[in-house]
Design a protein around this nucleic acid. Sequence first.
DNA 1: CAGATAAGTGTACATAATATACTTATTGAT
DNA 2: ATCAATAAGTATATTATGTACACTTATCTG
Lengths: 229, 229
Amino acid sequence: MTEAFYNNKDKLYVAVDCIIMGFQDNELNILIAKRPFEPMKGGWSLMGGFVNSFESINEAAKRVVGEFTGIDDIYLEQVGAFGEVDRDLERVISIGYYALVDIEKFDTSLAAKYDARWVRITQLPELIFDHSLMVKDTLNLLQRRAAVKPIGFNLLQEKFTLPTLQSLYESIYQNAIDKRNFRKKILAMDILEKLDEKDKTSSRKGAFYYRFIKEKYDQLIQQGLNFSI
Amino acid sequence: MTEAFYNNKDKLYVAVDCIIMGFQDNELNILIAKRPFEPMKGGWSLMGGFVNSFESINEAAKRVVGEFTGIDDIYLEQVGAFGEVDRDLERVISIGYYALVDIEKFDTSLAAKYDARWVRITQLPELIFDHSLMVKDTLNLLQRRAAVKPIGFNLLQEKFTLPTLQSLYESIYQNAIDKRNFRKKILAMDILEKLDEKDKTSSRKGAFYYRFIKEKYDQLIQQGLNFSI
DNA sequence: CAGATAAGTGTACATAATATACTTATTGAT
DNA sequence: ATCAATAAGTATATTATGTACACTTATCTG
């Protein structure tokens, strides 16, 4: 019998914890919440939930991000499994996922419901359990990913300016980038379309909007070229 | 009560599957076994086991590698969690770990016991469940890691020749490397010590043995230099 | 119309990656 | 003893990439 082999093994709680990232005020922001129940009631926490037996762990993460943001158009990637015995009060294996969302699509009514808020990544409070470690691992992973894949655009609105895009990369890598070098590199890839319209909210001169052309990117990749910031 | 919040949630089986890698015949080898029980009895499988409630997932992986190789001096890193609903017959979340071992330390008596054998990574058969995917993800991860960390030495004996080291990197990256460029780069890092002794098993001239000096590497890293192949 | 502000632009230099061919040490066979 | 065979070992030139650096331009406001 199939079950015979498994029967005497332990079963554990399995959770997903989501590092939900948005871009706002020229900085990466992460959605965190005040935990409304014990254990660690009142502590700052990532958005999480338990994995049900009928859903994959990816589906669970997508569900959790949807529940807490109202957004289902997200970039989602697994950070890894966190499984120290004492990471929670009960024995819970948690699988970390980071999500990149367009913060403009955030359903703000949910912020009140869950006592959740966007906090700049440089100003995060200490989080409960191993959640701070999850954020640290995520930033590491994001830095490696963003260097070789155009995932940053998932954090922006469809139209964005080059100064905004540069701020995004500066926030991801936590260091300043020379704007001439940045523009040279990003424009040389030939995956952005310059629009006629300007954004004048942050300067008198205004900065031209650009658009990421996914089709062109896919085509270049197929030709063996590679994205690299 | 703490348990109240968790109580109505599903518990799942959690396993670890280990991609145990050795280096032999100038190629990466992976330890696989013929599965002795249902489901998928007789199929080729990675080395795995269930996570017990009293051990961390890292500990579980280390235990499994020890059980199947007799080696406890290993480099271990998590590949990620695999959680499709139908990845096994029962609902089992599996966490993949790859291990780099010195294949000379392998306890060969265990090979018979578990019907396990070392197979070249280029000649792996189709594995059961999602194990082939785990191997693919591992090779990817290993390629990125080996480029920036000297983890390859975990696969070699303490003394090794430069031609052997080069073969190792060629096997990891699955392409040929020019030996002049390779030697220039690896020696420039100044983390290898040349020994007086030669290995004459593969040529009449013989190749000098070298040794990896971890202390020197650690020192260089502390000074902000970085390893890069 | 002058001043303020951020957007936008080009070149020179340094570093790193890549391509390329001959010499040397040693053993085994004659 | 000499030669043939084999893999180990070695240096340089070229190209590509990354980095450093300062002035001009468009537009709004007062």
